[in-house]
Design a protein around this nucleic acid. Structure first.
Lengths: 127, 127
DNA sequence: TGCACATCTGCAGAACTCTTCATATATCAA
DNA sequence: TTGATATATGAAGAGTTCTGCAGATGTGCA
């Protein structure tokens, strides 16, 4: 809640003003952070990468990620709530698919980047 | 720790095998999730978006994000540890800059997407 | 040398997240 | 209808994360 004119000394007030002018609104920032946050968990990320190639049912997803089926279901529920994945029900099975073009783009980019840096640093360096 | 052959029934074992073959290694998944995780906090995200245009000092970043200078410093430390941002020290000030091309790409994409969806849904829909 | 300023850091509490366990719902097959 | 299978859900506990506070470090100026 600190205002520029109040209790903070600014080094470059003009830059601050222009950055603020360009800055997306709080809600956009929050929504975007939400999306990144969903991708920020290794298990969910793996789940989503698995779905890049097409739909899969819960038990297959559980097998791929190594999660319990309950944990898988919880994770999918969260992703579903954010409309990142969609479901198709067929009998007793539920087939999930990636349902967000933006997320797909982010995933493709991330996977490509992974493969690229692997090519450069095959030995893997720490984060 | 469940193995395919053990206590889990698979619906489509061939798809599971091919997805597993394509799947990046655990470490790559973890690293990628880390990066997304860093972008998954609204304050850090705002911090990074502010840095898209060029370097800024800690107090200006605090003013832009509305965070305390302590919280800003903590956040920047984390980003620094992951080499997402870099510092240049000048006298008493520390100027931070975005230092990771991949993250910059993700941020550009996200901001562009934000502006795009705003154009389509100016009224904003819930997440 | 001494003070003010900008930033950094460790710590501890509050808030959030993820998993597991137990149970619920829904579908299919006999 | 009954039992088995597939998935969903709620609650609770463990673990993690973020912030503010207090104090530390380092720089510049008088």
């Amino acid at each position: 809640m600190q205002l520029d004119s109040c209790n903070v000394r600014l080094v470059d007030p003009e830059r601050v003003a222009s950055v603020n002018a360009r800055m997306p609104g709080e809600e956009d920032i929050a929504d975007t952070a939400d999306v990144f946050g969903l991708l920020g968990d290794p298990r969910r990320l793996k789940l989503l990468v698995a779905l890049l190639d097409g739909e899969l049912c819960v038990c297959d997803l559980a097998a791929i990620t190594g999660l319990s089926e309950s944990a898988t279901s919880h994770a999918l529920r969260l992703l579903r709530a954010h409309r990142v994945v969609g479901v198709r029900r067929d009998g007793r099975n539920a087939f999930y698919r990636l349902d967000d073009a933006h997320v797909r783009m982010l995933l493709d980019l991330a996977v490509a980047h992974t493969e690229h840096t692997d090519a450069i640093h095959p030995e893997r360096s720490e984060a």
